[in-house]
């Protein structure tokens, strides 16, 4: 847990490249200022902070991110995206991390098991299912 061995140059890691391709962002541009995390309204519910997501990616550790809660806690509010000093679209990178799993036909939310579905407005259901199902 507190030790990670780098086995190959993260720049060559296939999944890192895939994330860069899906998001269209150069994740290596991040210089760890932390402004994404300090401004993130959902950060307190995350297990990996947005800035840490980028450090994991820069070290080629995609596994940790695929098992993390963070991409599924991101609300795509774009606060980080508009404030990032180097212009990274972090929301798109979070989406890429979700897509990596959703594209394997993975349901993060099961529409049939949502509690109190009748009280929820259509806008909530549509947006949720669009983000969390393939």
């Amino acid at each position: 847990m507190m030790k990670y061995t780098i086995k190959e140059d993260p720049h060559n890691d296939e999944r890192v490249r895939e994330i860069m391709e899906i998001s269209g962002e150069n994740i290596f541009a991040c210089y760890q200022c932390g402004r994404c995390s300090s401004g993130c309204p959902m950060a307190e519910f995350m297990d990996v902070l947005p800035n840490q997501v980028f450090m994991f990616l820069q070290e080629g550790d995609v596994d940790t991110l695929l098992s993390a809660r963070t991409p599924w806690v991101c609300a795509a509010c774009f606060t980080c995206t508009v404030r990032c000093p180097v212009g990274l679209d972090l929301a798109a990178v979070m989406e890429a991390l979700r897509e990596l799993q959703l594209r394997k036909n993975y349901d993060y939310v099961d529409p049939y098991r949502v509690e109190n579905r009748e009280e929820l407005p259509p806008i909530a259901l549509v947006s949720n299912f669009r983000k969390f199902t393939p």
Partner: peptide
Amino acid sequence: VQGVDTLTGRIV
């Protein structure tokens, strides 16, 4: 002041 401690990984 809404900040972050990137070293411990917490919102401060």
